[in-house]
């Protein structure tokens, strides 16, 4: 699976209260959730999100277990999140929602607006703007299968035969 997108660059410890404010938890429509991603934190996020790849530092998605954080990013048009490390609940939520979450290294050399190409199977991250490439941790096959199915529920429905 090959992904491409422009970089939105973020720092360390981006928590889920910033990604998706608690007051919008009652929203159940993913498209509507997307409208509140990073509200009050990054003013032009929604204009830039579609087709973009978030590149962040350590501990992305820490804090509240709210799955809406991953759902909102996915439906805002974020192609993937690459980070030095992820908080574990967010990582599971992202995969379960079919949003690729990739651990990469030396990401500080990637700039805002760069064009990235990611090979999910190899875990390889290429910066097409600077020509540099970065090692990432490849996802195990069972997680890739969830992403390719579009999320865990879809995957389970197939493997359990629809129930």
């Amino acid at each position: 699976m090959i992904l491409r997108g422009r970089v939105i660059k973020l720092g360390d410890n981006i928590d889920t209260d910033q990604i998706y404010p608690g007051r919008y938890l009652p929203i159940t429509e993913p498209v509507e959730m997307a409208g509140h991603a990073f509200e009050g934190i990054i003013s032009d996020f929604l204009q830039r999100a579609k087709g973009s790849i978030i590149v962040a530092g350590k501990n992305f998605g820490c804090g509240s277990s709210r799955e809406q954080a991953a759902t909102a990013l996915k439906w805002a048009g974020i192609v993937a999140v690459v980070a030095e490390s992820f908080a574990r609940i967010f990582f599971r939520n992202a995969i379960n929602q079919g949003l690729p979450a990739i651990i990469g290294h030396h990401l500080d050399r990637i700039n805002e607006g760069d064009e990235l190409r990611i090979d999910l199977h190899l875990g390889k991250i290429e910066d097409l703007t600077t020509g540099e490439s970065y090692p990432g941790d490849p996802l195990p096959d069972f997680l890739l299968a969830i992403i390719e199915a579009g999320g865990l529920i879809e995957k389970l429905k197939r493997s359990l035969g629809g129930g």
Binding site: G63, S64, S65, R66, E67, A70, I89, R92, N93, N96, Q97, G151, L152, I153, L156
Partner: peptide, 26 residues
Amino acid sequence: GADSHSCTSGALAAFATGMGSTDVAI
């Protein structure tokens, strides 16, 4: 528990952990 502070019950020597809504639904 679909709440990150579900680890609280760990003080009773239960393996208690937070997950997202989908994981808890499963």
